[in-house]
Every structure is written in C-alpha cells, then in structure tokens.
C-alpha cells in the first residue's frame, strides 16, 4: 500500500506538535520509536488525524501502524472508502 505525498505531508504537519525531539519528519519516521512518543500521545495524535480527514481509524489499526507512510496509507484507503 503506498500513500500520496499530500497525505504524508499533512500527517507530518499534524504530528509536529507531538514531536519534541527536533528530528525532521519523513515518510519513514517511526512515530512511536523514533520520536519517543508514548502510547497515550500516539492515540491523541491519531485522533487529530481522524478529525482532519473526517475518517475513523480504530485503535486496532493504530497498533499495526508504525511509520508515517504506514499511517498515510491507512488514511488514503479510508478516505477513499468514505
């Protein structure tokens, strides 16, 4: 599953407030492992993504999503379905 560059770009913008490491965000960035974001903050971030795209991303899907590109692919698939 590949994600559109626009979606990746938008997810990076939404993730930036949660990124306290100063690391530059790319499609390969692992949201939790690379940015040292705890489990609750990851869920809070995904809620922002859900509301921005007006889609539902169940927690079961979040747990299988590691990188920004993984999440962007989920978003694209769900936006299309909606």
């Amino acid at each position: 599953m590949t994600a559109s560059p626009e979606t990746i770009d938008q997810i990076c913008k939404l993730l930036e407030p949660f990124n306290s490491t100063g690391k530059a965000l790319t499609s390969d960035t692992e949201i939790s492992a690379d940015l040292n974001i705890d489990s609750v903050a990851v869920m809070d971030f995904v809620m922002e993504v859900e509301d921005h795209f007006d889609i539902e991303i169940p927690l079961n899907v979040v747990s299988e999503t590691h990188s920004i590109s993984d999440l962007a692919a989920v978003v694209d698939a769900r936006v299309k379905k909606a």
Binding site: M43, M47, E56, P58, L59, N60
Partner: peptide, 11 residues
C-alpha cells in the same frame, strides 16, 4: 478489556 474483546475500538 477492550483489547481482549477483539472488538473494533474507537476512542
């Protein structure tokens, strides 16, 4: 408990 249920989880 929600995880154990296997249900879809929406927060």
């Amino acid at each position: 408990g929600c995880t154990l249920s296997g249900a879809k989880l929406v927060r």
